[in-house]
């Protein structure tokens, strides 16, 4: 395990990205520019991730995590800076990327049954009926919802609904999956099981996952690498490599000294971010 201060991170935009990675360079975003409510959310974020990697982004609440994800996904254009996916600038949502939103209740379409929700994005891309059905079946099986295909989202519990939205993302088969605090609004029990569902699917399907969370335990438990953001206007304070072996276990992994130490490290960084002590010299 190691802690790399952000300014030693160099953005290599030739080698790593060609293999299917995401790189953000000096992202700035300002809301309501020129108005009295001007808010500088992103203050120059630079980081990159490799194909197949599971990266978690944590930061104090209100630090612009959702803004960052919206900029990375192409849902929103940053005020300045660039996002490259596989060496191509991201201007709108790219084909091999998708998002899982925090608020599953408003992200699934309540008028479509579970299987239709999962199938909905596939109908756009010219995939044949048989292939679509197979993908839906497999995705629902992956998240353990095979028996609920013909229910409406409203008939499912919150945790099951979020599993449907994960299944929808899986069936879409993006290379890169961006997740915006996907488990923040489910209870602790469901959350732990969803984390394991995600890890298992990630291991099996070899996705690249960028997982935004405000939960330090969750970030360390899930990720290969934790990117810690500062308060808004946020920048990357540190990147912490989590070299805890996989498969990980909710109880045993979380009891290991490595886990405890890493969690403390991240927690300290976030606390320092709150007091401003984490600001690197030269940042203006």
């Amino acid at each position: 395990m190691s802690i790399e201060p952000m300014h030693e991170e160099s953005v290599d935009d030739s080698g790593a990205e060609a293999s299917g990675s995401l790189a953000a360079t000096d992202l700035h975003h300002v809301y309501g520019r020129g108005t009295s409510e001007e808010h500088h959310a992103l203050g120059g974020i630079t980081f990159s991730m490799n194909k197949g990697e599971f990266v978690a982004i944590v930061g104090p609440s209100g630090c612009g995590k959702t803004t960052l994800l919206r900029c990375l996904s192409g849902l929103m254009a940053p005020t300045s800076g660039s996002v490259m996916l596989e060496g191509v600038p991201v201007e709108s949502v790219p084909k091999d990327l998708t998002l899982v939103f925090q608020d599953y209740r408003r992200s699934l379409y309540p008028w479509l049954r579970v299987d239709a929700n999962v199938e909905f994005p596939l109908k756009n891309s010219g995939i044949g009926k048989a292939e679509r059905t197979e993908r839906v079946r497999q995705a629902l099986e992956d998240v353990g919802l095979s028996g609920h295909a013909s229910k409406y989202p409203g008939q499912l519990s919150g945790g099951m609904q979020q599993r449907v939205s994960i299944a929808r993302a899986l069936a879409y088969r993006p290379h890169l999956l961006l997740m915006d605090e996907p488990f923040a609004s489910v209870d602790a029990q469901t959350r732990a099981s969803l984390e394991d569902v995600l890890l298992e699917v990630w291991a099996r399907r070899r996705k690249t996952v960028l997982f935004v969370t405000h939960d330090i335990d969750e970030s360390v438990y899930l990720a290969d690498r934790v990117v810690v953001l500062s308060n808004a206007p946020s920048h990357v304070m540190a990147e912490i490599v989590v070299d805890i072996p996989r498969p990980r276990d909710q109880i045993e992994t979380k009891a290991t000294p490595e886990f405890v130490e890493l969690r403390a490290e991240v927690a300290r960084l976030i606390r320092d971010a709150g007091t401003g002590a984490g600001k690197p010299a030269g940042d203006s």
């Binding site: 084909k95 998708t98 998002l99 939103f101 608020d103 408003r106 992200s107 109908k123 756009n124």
Partner: peptide, 18 residues
Amino acid sequence: IDPLYLDTATAYRISRSR
């Protein structure tokens, strides 16, 4: 209409007509 419905459609590149 909930903006997240539309964001979801954008995230999955749903065509304008659909």
